[in-house]
């Protein structure tokens, strides 16, 4: 199992999970710290002092220019990080085109669009016996194009037979026609689903 093909199984959610988990951990830690202070575990006098501590305020007054610059820097960092995070979650998954011959001089070359590849492979995969429905998509994994195939198998289809036919016919043909030695491929199988009734 190559790492590329494994990464192509689904869009990565690592960033979303890391941010939500990290911010959750920070929030829980801050809340717990406030509770500790409030309960008087750091000393009764500490607990009865106001939230905006006079000593801290005095210190900030004494170092006002530096405090202001520090606050500005923190503000800029917060805005940048927030915008980056929001744009990362909103950005759709990239579908890279395949560049077969890059000709920089004439600004030409041969480029196969992601939709064209996906459509050709989808049609090919649907012709395999035992496959009821196929969906294909070109995704980017570690800056190389990879393939994600979703196959709905007919009831009682032999998974071994579907695999070998898929590998021999569909994937080999895709590799040959695109002229690449290997395309990392992730296949998602849906087994045993009911035949979809088509209304005529």
């Amino acid at each position: 199992m190559s790492r590329e093909s494994r990464a192509a199984v689904a869009r990565s959610e690592r960033l979303d999970r890391l941010t939500v988990g990290g911010i959750g951990a920070l929030a829980a830690a801050a809340g717990a710290a406030a509770l500790v202070v409030s309960a008087g575990w750091l000393g009764r006098p500490r607990a009865s002092r106001p939230l905006a501590d006079p000593i801290a305020l005095q210190w900030l007054q004494a170092h006002q220019p530096w405090a202001q610059v520090g606050a500005l820097v923190v503000g800029v960092l917060l805005v940048l990080f927030g915008l980056w995070l929001a744009s990362r979650t909103l950005r759709p998954e990239p579908r890279p085109d395949l560049v077969l011959e890059d000709d920089a001089e004439t600004a030409g070359g041969l480029r196969v669009t992601a939709q064209a590849i996906a459509e050709a492979i989808r049609a090919d995969a649907e012709s395999v016996s035992g496959v009821a429905e196929a969906r294909a998509r070109v995704v980017r994994v570690n800056d190389t194009p990879a393939l994600r195939l979703q196959l709905r198998l007919r009831h009682g289809a032999d998974v071994h037979a579907v695999w070998s036919e898929l590998d021999k016919r569909v994937l080999t043909r895709a590799r040959e026609s695109l002229g690449v030695p290997a395309i990392p491929t992730a296949i998602r199988l849906e087994l045993g689903s009911a035949q979809r009734q088509r209304v005529k």
């Binding site: 999970r17 890391l18 939500v20 988990g21 911010i23 959750g24 951990a25 920070l26 929030a27 829980a28 830690a29 801050a30 809340g31 717990a32 406030a34 509770l35 202070v37 409030s38 008087g40 500490r46 607990a47 009865s48 002092r49 106001p50 939230l51 905006a52 006079p54």
Partner: peptide, 29 residues
């Protein structure tokens, strides 16, 4: 903020909410 002491109920409730929300987010992640 100068009025509120750390022992104020507002602080305690806010801290509890913060802990709960943080744990929920951790669990979800």
């Amino acid at each position: 903020a100068e009025e509120l002491a750390w022992t104020a109920n507002t602080i305690r409730v806010t801290a509890c909410v913060l802990v709960a929300a943080g744990l929920a987010m951790l669990l979800l992640a």
